[in-house]
Amino acid sequence: MSETDLPSALATIRDDFLALEQHERLVLLLEFANELPELPPEYADHPDLLERVEECQSPVFIFVDVDPGDAGGGIVHLHATAPKEAPTTRGFASILVQGLAGLTAQQVLDVPDDYPLTLGLTEAVSPLRIRGMSALLGRTKRQVREKTAA
């Protein structure tokens, strides 16, 4: 997938970050942190269904639903939870939840693994946080592959 093939929501998010000065990017990331949707009750009531993203310093958990569908492998719904005390990680979880919403499984799998690096946050957050962000995307893709193979 070339940069121009990036799904529109993810491309818009990336462009919004890159249009800002470095310190403003962190503010935007914190805004995303406040927009992370609550887990649906079926997951909030069953935390055992969620996968911990071990690479994240904070306790971050995800679950991917793939609705059966077209040849693209169905529509992906990412659910994530992260503590409010971990706003950078929570912000990136929110970016993925919003940016992947409504995409087909194939579109999610085609998102470049280095997408977190394209947001221009490498000077604003630590390398460990960037690694956690990349792990969130990687685990999401792995769950999509597992669910579309089943």
Rank of each mutant, 00 (worst) to 15 (best):
M1R: 04
T4K: 10
A11G: 07
T12W: 06
T12H: 15
I13W: 15
I13A: 10
I13P: 13
R14P: 00
D15V: 05
D15N: 14
D16T: 12
F17W: 07
L18M: 08
L18E: 07
L18I: 15
L18C: 05
E21H: 15
Q22C: 09
Q22H: 15
H23M: 15
E24M: 06
R25V: 08
R25N: 06
L26P: 09
L28Y: 04
L28M: 04
L28K: 05
L29V: 06
L30F: 07
E31G: 11
F32K: 09
F32Y: 14
N34W: 08
E35W: 01
L36F: 03
P37H: 00
P37R: 05
P37Y: 00
P37L: 05
E38Q: 10
L39D: 01
L39G: 04
P40Q: 07
P41R: 05
E42V: 13
E42W: 15
E42P: 06
Y43I: 15
Y43D: 08
D45A: 08
D45G: 03
H46T: 06
H46A: 10
H46N: 13
D48P: 08
D48E: 12
D48A: 11
E51R: 13
V53W: 04
V53S: 05
Q57N: 15
Q57Y: 15
S58T: 05
V60C: 14
V60E: 08
V60Y: 00
F61I: 03
I62Y: 12
I62A: 04
F63W: 11
F63A: 15
F63S: 01
F63P: 14
V64R: 01
D65C: 00
P68Y: 12
P68I: 02
P68A: 08
D70R: 13
A71T: 10
G72V: 06
G73Q: 02
G74A: 01
G74I: 07
V76K: 07
H77K: 11
H77E: 13
L78F: 02
H79R: 10
A80M: 07
A82C: 15
A82I: 02
P83I: 00
P83W: 01
K84Q: 11
E85S: 10
A86P: 08
A86Y: 05
T88R: 04
T88Q: 04
T88M: 09
T89W: 01
T89V: 08
R90T: 03
G91L: 12
F92R: 01
A93T: 09
S94Q: 04
L96F: 09
Q98T: 09
Q98D: 13
G99F: 03
G99A: 01
L100W: 02
L100C: 15
G102R: 11
G102M: 03
L103Y: 06
Q107W: 01
L109S: 13
V111E: 04
P112H: 12
D113C: 14
D113E: 06
D114M: 10
Y115D: 12
P116H: 00
L117Q: 12
T118E: 12
L119V: 04
L121V: 12
T122A: 07
T122R: 15
A124S: 11
A124T: 13
V125Y: 01
V125A: 00
I130K: 02
I130D: 00
R131Q: 11
R131H: 05
S134F: 10
L137H: 10
L137Q: 00
G138L: 09
K141E: 02
R142T: 11
V144L: 09
V144I: 09
R145I: 10
E146L: 12
E146P: 14
E146V: 04
K147N: 10
T148P: 12
T148Q: 03
T148I: 12
A150S: 13
